[in-house]
Amino acid sequence: MSQLSTQIPEGYVKVFSRPRSLSDAKYTYCPGCHHGIIGRLIAEAIDELGIQERAVGVAPVGCAVFLFRFYNVDFVQAAHGRACAVATGLKRASPNLIVFTYQGDGDLAAIGTAETVHAANRGENFTVIFVNNQIYGMTGGEMAPTTLPGQRTVTCPEGRDVKLTGHPLKVSEMLAQLDGPVYITRQAVYDARHIQMAKKAILKAFRNQAEGKGFSLVEIVADCPTNFQMSPVEANRWVVEKALQYFPLGDLKVKED
């Protein structure tokens, strides 16, 4: 049986490897999809904070439905949109756990709006990673609450008409108005610099929880090459040129104590 050697040859120094919290299961994401990068950043943050043995993830419904396969941490699969309610139950039952949800825009900003807003407003002490790729990926590219005006999807084939279906929902701006959350930020992972910034934000969001500060949400504006019907390079460019025009990056709320 052939196997790749994990031995480091003499004279070489290991500078990059799989985070301990990331399992060796293969990602089920499409080529060029940002989920893979974001997934890795979470694992790195868990490793760096040394919280692998008390982390519990809440997997959503959507492209990240297999999330529990990718990590060496405990996981629970939530119903579509209910991750923040499930996380509330987990964290209230076992406050020592480090609980995080990972949700797409359909999950968090459409079917799960109520659960998200109320968990944020209660200041629940867990961490939300919100991947906003402006489309439903898993089900085949339907219009999301975050689909941009004029953007074509299979359920708005002529482009999103804001007169008929409203405007993209600015979840982070909405949540930043509440008194409950401690940290609401919008990040992206389309280049190395932004990946590093997103990593810092994710670290901060987990650290807030470990320090008992309360609700943190990191929104990441991402792509979906398959359903945008673009190459990975074009989809990456879409994030910069289109999506960020509507969803500008930066911290929306940082409550310092």
Partner: peptide
């Protein structure tokens, strides 16, 4: 909870924690 939908999902989370 904010709704019965949320309430039963909080139950789901707490049950998963083993209480």
């Amino acid at each position: 909870a904010e709704s019965e939908v949320a309430a039963i999902n909080m139950v789901y989370g707490a049950a998963a924690a083993g209480v």
